[in-house]
Design a protein around this nucleic acid. Sequence first.
DNA 1: AAAGAGACCAACCGCATTACA
DNA 2: ATGTAATGCGGTTGGTCTCTT
Length: 217
Amino acid sequence: MEQGAAAGWWRKGPWTPQEDELLFQYISQNGEGRWSSVSKCTGLKRSGKSCRLRWVNYLRPDLKKGQLTPQEEGIIIELHALWGNKWSTIARYLPGRTDNEIKNYWRTHFKTRSPSTHLKKRKILNQQQAHRRPNNVTITEPSHSHDKEMAFSSIIDINHQSVSSSDDFVAPFEMDCYLWNLDDDHHLPNLMPHEYYHPFEGDAAVDYYVQTAEVLL
DNA sequence: AAAGAGACCAACCGCATTACA
DNA sequence: ATGTAATGCGGTTGGTCTCTT
């Protein structure tokens, strides 16, 4: 049990710059982990849980600040369609972004269904659509999420993609192509680019994403 | 200019899982 | 094998900012 938990003297609420500094220094010297000993070593009146959250969501030096890019938004939409509210899993494919940030983003942009939000959503998706290559397609229902998770894991493996670098993530279009062209053993066929089957295009794609987002809520 | 609504974000809570004695 | 502490995750809340009327 953490020292202050029983006594109930943990400080709550917004962090001060001084607290941030203490936590940052502690982790710089000792590394991440051992969160429960942070308060003992630094004098911070914060629970280990609170310290971890502050570090992960705010202080970590590799965090990306600022708005999500259209590419990142596209990835979130696609991965959420695959995995649902597995925010930490989704965050792994968005280097520098936190599960909390993605969760907040999703909640803000897709949870509410007011007309304005709907329009905004369409605008975002239309922007993403502009990056997609043309193709002749038909709409196909997505397979089971488990299958898609397996497929997506294989994608990363097949292509030896590093997801640890902030500049290196799989673009939405590429993900679609991979997902929809993998065979049962999750291997890519030997196809020319124009032969790839791409299930989503144009308004059909937008509608699919919007519907998926709404169905999942 | 003021008030209300909506968007955004930080942080907390409770539960589940993992690690360890 | 079991109990407990630590950690991780997802849901939720509340405060602040921005936009609209």
